[in-house]
């Protein structure tokens, strides 16, 4: 049975833990707002891009000279997984759920006899995947130094991916990130980057007219597809940033609540024990007096 002093120390330590988790929750809430804003601000660009790509690629469908980024290089042997996670922990199941999705995907591919290569973005994902899949990780990207996510970060990753593709290092590329649904729900998502999946963009009504292209459609497409990769990665990074803060906020919220419950329980125990001790001392005094 812990002594009164032990209990007192325990209560103080839980109290300071609660202060920390509470502060982290508030910081995450503030960061979440900013992350959400920038994710929203980036949406028009990727939406317009998707529309134009959907437009152009429908006209390229079935043609032999369709760019490889759109149609694939005809093989399906080597898969590249780009796994985006957070740089920091203490955000609930955020990092592990993304890593789990990537792991399941990798296991499925390997069971089919495919080759798997992994690029991790973010330290945490690297830490988790390193243990089991260390030999497949070909590159890691560290964004810890970046205070705010800029498009240039996404471009740097996109360039790496494109270079590997041009060198024939892989055939199919899939991007893993957590889609931001709401503060309490983030959905780990796998998105195929190469060959590009361009479905879903809505085509504007031209009223019977057709687009005049300058230069021709094939050339525009060849120019746009590499850009689209960077845009998709940028979107994934922004969604991830918002999801991370959301996950951290709810994780820290429940941690703060748990700490409160714990303090209540410990205080009740402390008070009971203190009372029992006083009673015991009284009994000792009284029985001492009676013995005289």
């Amino acid at each position: 049975m812990p002594s009164l002093k032990d209990l007192r120390n325990r209560i103080t330590s839980v109290k300071s833990t609660r202060k920390i988790t509470k502060a982290m929750q508030m910081v995450a809430a503030a960061k979440l707002r900013r992350a959400q804003e920038s994710a929203l601000a980036a949406r028009p660009y990727s939406e317009r891009m998707a529309t134009v790509l959907a437009n152009l690629s429908s006209s390229m469908e079935g043609r032999d000279d369709a760019p490889q980024l759109l149609a694939g290089n005809g093989k399906d042997q080597t898969h590249l997984l780009v796994v985006c996670t957070a740089e920091r922990g203490l955000c609930g199941g955020f990092n592990s759920s993304i890593a789990r999705l990537a792991r399941e995907h990798a296991d499925r591919l390997m069971a089919q006899g495919k080759t798997v290569k992994i690029i991790t973005v973010g330290k945490k994902g690297n830490d988790i995947l390193k243990r089991l899949y260390g030999r497949f990780i070909i590159d890691t990207v560290d964004l810890r130094a970046a205070r705010t996510l800029a498009f240039s970060h996404a471009q740097a990753i996109a360039q790496k991916v494109l270079k590997l593709f041009e060198d024939g290092q892989f055939d199919v590329c899939t991007l893993f990130f957590a889609e931001f649904k709401s503060v309490i729900s983030q959905k780990p998502t796998a998105l195929q980057l190469i060959p590009a999946s361009v479905k879903g963009g809505k085509t504007p009504d031209l009223g019977g007219a057709i687009y005049d292209s300058e230069p021709d459609e094939g050339e525009i497409l060849a120019d746009l597809l590499p850009r689209n990769i960077a845009v998709q990665i940028f979107r994934a990074l922004l969604e991830n940033a918002a999801s991370e803060q959301g996950a951290r906020m709810s994780a820290m919220d429940s941690a703060t609540r748990n700490a409160g419950d714990m303090i209540n329980k410990l205080s009740i125990r402390y008070n009971r024990q203190r009372q029992a001790q006083i009673t015991k001392e009284l009994i000792e005094i009284i029985s001492g007096a009676e013995a005289l």
Partner: peptide, 10 residues
């Protein structure tokens, strides 16, 4: 100008 024909250009 307003009413331009649909165009895509890099």
């Amino acid at each position: 100008l307003p009413g331009h024909a649909p165009v895509l250009s890099t």
